[in-house]
Design a protein around this nucleic acid. Sequence first.
RNA 1: GACCACGUAGCCAAGUAGUAAGGCAGGGGUCUGCAAAACCUCGAUACGCGAGUGCAAUUCUCGCCGUGGUCU
Length: 302
Amino acid sequence: MHKLLIICGPTATGKTSLGFNLAEEFNGEIVSADSRQVFCGMDIITGKQVDSKIKTWLIDIVNPDQRFSVADYYELAWKVISDIWHRGKLPIVVGGTGFYINALINGIETMGVEPDWKLREQLFHCSVVSLLETLEKIDPQRYRRMNESDRKNPRRLIRAIEVANQKSKIKNQNEKIKNFDSLIIGLTLSNEILYQRIDQRVEERIKMGAEDEIKKLFAQGYNWENSVLGVTIGYKEWKEYFEKKVAKEEVIQKWKFAEHDYARRQMTWFRKALRCAQSKWFDITKENCQTEVENDVKSWYS
RNA sequence: GACCACGUAGCCAAGUAGUAAGGCAGGGGUCUGCAAAACCUCGAUACGCGAGUGCAAUUCUCGCCGUGGUCU
């Protein structure tokens, strides 16, 4: 059976470096699972890393003003993975976007129901209550399945209505499930140290020219509204700075906090994912972490 | 040294004679085509110290300490 290695974990845990090492050792290629590194020109702030010897796929594949979603990721990622398999190499999925990784492994049943942008725009102005009423009317089952959190989430409600409108397009789950042997490696460490690492990395990115990167993107015609910049950590925090409303120090602090928050959300995702599949956590602050991972992969791969 | 102001959770910050908003930070969670998004949820027994008046003080009075400012 084909093998698929997956490396996940919150930001700033060294997933990419580990990926490169393992790729070298096991004749692999990297398949990125990162919802922001797909965008061209967003390099420093999203933390893109390249290795001259190791091929990395699914980085720099669209422009910041183009739409990209899990569905796109799913299609592309499987295409790439199949290709790597055909060439007799090991695909190593590396990334922090839990949603993408989860979709890749388990498939998405409503995939195939494309976004109805007209509908979305229409419903955008509706209150949560009226969205709920609409959904309850057209798809009571879905309504009942939703939890407290999702019922108050307009974005999810709108999507649910969108799906309900095109129910016939929901694909059979089985079609989407691929057959492969996967090993998931999760990287962790205590929040305290993780936050220190994040803060340090933010400082480094500023030194590397984060501010200039944003200016360059502006110069290319991208702005907070027409691109993904306005909803991306490390970029959106600068908005008020460029509007001369806040000092740079404040931007930096907000950026750090946003990364902490993001790391926490990533962890809740991975905690769940790693509970079921064939997977294992590694504490990167442990001395022999790297060796342990290598041994695990070795015994799984052979 | 004198005068004035202030002293509320890790930080910022409201407020009241009957034991106290909110924000940030922090923790937990949701998740099936925007996911670095969007959304849900949870704390902490915080009113500088001492005395006085009051049924009752964080809230009033006095003293002390601390911080900031003004003045000679």
